[in-house]
């Protein structure tokens, strides 16, 4: 990832490279809020249109039955250096969006599972997915006002997490708090990586 010269972007040699981190969680868990708290751009939305062939669908036109689903994701950007740009993707937490997680999880540095203790079960699909895929992840408990206070160990127990998975409390609205979650994730990913190399 060297910088090839003074000419701006004469070829791919001097283009920065992008990396990504996922922020997964149920609806309203605070994904967009967290992306916005640390991103240098206001969160943008990208949508994927998924066309699925459906069987046995009543179809007057006579063509093959197809259903389309539009899945929207929020994302933000952090320029790390001249060579490196980090994208943060807020991804919908429901199981039925696995097809999008697959594209997103490929090559991701890691994932943050944002948990809302009022609906802790919304975090199950994301935890299962990242565990199964071997993606490094941390669980960040977004403290909403008035939410009954679970402690870290209770969340770990409720989500049946391996002991090595970090669980942290956070306020997704706070830049410092969200930065700390990212730092925790990256340190955890590095530790897992070094353990694997050894």
């Amino acid at each position: 990832m060297e910088f090839a010269g003074s000419e701006p972007y004469p070829g791919t040699g001097s283009l920065p490279t992008a990396v990504k981190i996922l922020i997964a969680g149920g609806f309203g868990a605070g994904k967009t809020t967290m992306v916005g708290a640390v991103s240098e751009i206001s969160p943008l939305q990208t949508e994927e249109v998924i066309t699925q062939t459906s069987e046995g669908v009543d179809d007057l036109s006579g063509v093959e039955g197809k259903t389309t689903t539009t899945v929207a994701m929020d994302f933000g950007r952090i320029t790390i250096s001249q060579d490196l740009v980090l994208y943060l993707f807020g991804t919908p937490g429901q199981n039925r969006f696995w097809f999008m997680w697959d594209e997103l999880a490929l090559g991701a540095l890691g994932a943050i599972v944002l948990a809302d203790t009022r609906r802790i079960e919304d975090s199950f699909p994301a935890v299962d997915y990242f565990e199964h895929r071997g993606t490094s992840f941390v669980v960040a408990v977004n403290r909403f006002d008035g939410a009954s206070d679970y402690d870290v160990e209770e969340v770990r127990y409720a989500l049946d997490l391996d002991t090595h998975v970090p669980v942290v409390m956070c306020d997704a609205r706070s830049r410092e708090s969200s930065k700390l979650v990212l730092v925790t994730l990256l340190e955890h990913a590095m530790a897992s990586r070094m353990a694997a190399v050894r």
Partner: peptide, 28 residues
């Protein structure tokens, strides 16, 4: 256009990349 594909999508992230991102986040 020129394009730059993301780093090694199929592989686990490299330690030096994780370190660079960590340093960058700490500097924010």
């Amino acid at each position: 256009i020129h394009t730059r594909a993301p780093i090694a999508l199929a592989e686990a992230p490299e330690i030096h990349v994780l370190q660079a991102v960590l340093d960058g986040i700490r500097r924010l």
